[in-house]
Design a protein around this nucleic acid. Sequence first.
RNA 1: GCCGGGGUGGCGGAACGGCAGACGCGGCCGUCUUAAACACGGCCGGGCGCAAGCCCGUGCGAGUUCGAAUCUCGCCCCCGGCACCA
Length: 848
Amino acid sequence: MSASQRIRIDRYDPTEIEPRWQQRWDELGLHRTDLSDTTRPRYYLLTMYPYPSGDIHIGHWYIKTPTDAIARFRRMHGDNVFLPIGFDAFGLPAENAAIKNRIHPAQWTLANIRNMRRQLRTMGATFDWDHEVVTSDPDYYRWNQWIFLRFLEAGLAYRAKSPVDWCPNDGTLAREQVEGADRRCWRCGSPVEKRELDQWYLRITKYADELLDFTGVDWPEPVRIMQTNWIGRSEGAEIEFTVAPDVHHPGGQPIRVFTTRPDTLFGATFMVLAPEHPLVGEITSPGQRAAVDAYVAQAGRETEIERLSAEREKTGVPTGAHAINPVNGARIPIWTADYVLAGYGTGAIMAVPAHDERDFAFAKEFDLPIVEVIRPDDALDDGRPLEEAYVSKAETDVLVNSGRYNGMAAPAAFRAIVEWLESEGKARFAVTYRIRDWLISRQRYWGTPIPVVYCDRDGIVPVPDRDLPVLLPETVDYAGSGDNPLRRDASFLDVACPTCGGPARRETDTMDTFVDSSWYWFRYLSPHLATGPVDRELVDRWTPVDQYTGGAEHAVMHLLYSRFFTKALRDIGVVGEGEPFRRLFNQGQVLGADGERMSKSRGNVQDPDELVGRYGADTVRLFLMFMGPWDQGGPWNPTGIGGVHRFLNRVWTLALDPHGSEPGDPDAEKLPAGLDAAAAEKAVRAAAHRTLAVVSAEYADFRFNTMVAHLMELSNALMRFRGTEIAGGGAWDEAIRILLLVLAPAAPHIAEELWSRRLAAAGAPWSSIHRERWPVVDAAAAAAVEREVPVQVNGKLRDKVMVPVDLSDAEVEAVVLAREKVVAALAGRSPDRVIHAGGRLVNIVVKG
RNA sequence: GCCGGGGUGGCGGAACGGCAGACGCGGCCGUCUUAAACACGGCCGGGCGCAAGCCCGUGCGAGUUCGAAUCUCGCCCCCGGCACCA
């Protein structure tokens, strides 16, 4: 009989259900957001837009399907949810494909986008496609150009020459994209070189201090720490040494150094200039000239790889010149060495080997004097030389060998010394940052053209707004090389100067694609607006973004640039607020089965289409949520997916066939031991409402793995009552209703299908489950009548007792102490103390 | 080296001061089936024991606590980021 019952209901067939509902939702406009609706609370839910590499892989699903679950969950709470999607469509892979396959980057990109749109739809996600943004579209990138011009006017964009990391293979700047200890290009893996080039920069350093302030944003601590370290604010002083006169020259040139430890000034026993420092050539003595020139030349020529092969061994040469230490007039030698960086601080340091590890190593290497000037207050001078640098920030440290500052606490000496030198005009308090301005120039075709022209008469001339966008030429000739084809394209290059009308040529550099992603969420609100980059009214109503989700690999660059852009756009009046994303959640990354990052070249990419074809989108969505905590990620292992599929099958069975019993279940049609029908119904309601309570909290906290586990528990509990006299009754029906409603955000298709069948069976008109309100917990139903009390003796579990929930601690204690096992464990001793842990547990403490 | 995250059954993981191992995978046993698959039921951290039960157990070592996977200190290992930033 059971076999015939089992075939009576339809099988769960996701391949039939899922496309049908996806189409229905489209018609219904479930995904469309009325941005002008102010009657409901807004919820701007942003997920990082994908790069159109061609295929959606399981990693995209891992990021995007839980985000869709959040959207559906918020909608069921009455929020007006905006969940847009778009494509980060500029970038190098399109050009590499173009060179390799002789296809236009735009064609390659658009074909990929078409394919990815189709694949994204199979997720059953409620993206608002009407607001799609494609950054390679002139309607988008013209506003990159417009923003650039405003930044130029505001002094936030400028051009400067500087040494930059250059990838000889890609023929492009590799600056932020240099990876690993041996400094290789992240795209092609070849070692990068340094080149001196004219480049466009955005003045992010102007916002360094504001970017350190995270008040008002709810971001993960690790991301805030990473950004803080990246900005790298150091407080200290700039101090002026002077070149000492000697037989070769009169001296007197100032050498400014930055130090975070002016209190160690008396311990400065030499100075070091970066090889690129302008004074190196000037002060070098004739005797050292050859050695210094050779060293400087070598430092400039050597690639980072060669420099690192020397592995931390300090190198350098003396210039032969000396400097005067302003605090004590000491004559100290000036060296040049590559461990001092030209781009940080002033490109010169005072070396205090006793209290800096690098200076210590250098002094040891070249046998330079080491003078101890800081000591813990309780340490005595044992006269022995230091074995390593004493680097301490202890408040109690005191100065020694420092003239009239001897015995002063280090923090006080810090201030006193700088104030003294300041009065002499030789120092000032100063702050230095690790962060550099953002270099946005890229020597590539497939990006936003930087809208300036170069005129022999007028110099650098911004393209007037009326001439925007500066379009990329439609034909592109790579001539089989990695060079920027714009440099050879006369139709693009030659232009009349907007100021004088004379011959001029266009800038051929295009913008870093991080520019595109630094404001795209504003554009989502009005993707087709022709009069400006953003609709200010919508921006004010809908931003900051309520929730941003994306991978942790963007913790610094994308997220920092986006914060910078938002602040800069605020300052030029385009938007109203200074933070882009109120809440941020970083998912982990799904790796290949081999534990490596998924990539086509490694051949470890999991294609979701195949899994969707076999199990359906709901199973894949649910499995990705079930795998583990969302912020954790991990190697892809599909072994457990069958378990999730079985769970959905069970939900199907429970909803459609409550009365059937399974073959092989010896207890079928019998209520579990000790329960009558009323107690069984009570237990079912309790299970449903408790599940509802915990699952609601888990959705809100993005704890999807335990959310799925709790739904499985509910289905297992219901399974025990299937085929019994209460199956299909009122309590059962309520439990199924709750199960379907809370399952709906995560597995939207099956929930919708079962919901519609319930409505049909009840003769009710159809309406979507995704427009239902989230169910309300019935606290009375969820409440238990009995609870289990674990009993410990001296912290070891000895017994468990069922007691009525309303028993007082004293009453529980009486019950517990009478238990046979407890008596045995006490062995005649009387309790010393009895601890009631908030009603959760009893611990009896005895001595002896 | 510095910063961040993490080490729990055969596996993914749960618990994050109070019953370690929820939920799932996998394995074993069973029911159904001519059979297999599906489905359903039971068991599965280790040791001792016929059993009741006892002992051990959350990378290692100490500490705090009535009680520690959880807090503190020291150490080891893995992953990610930064990498001579004065």
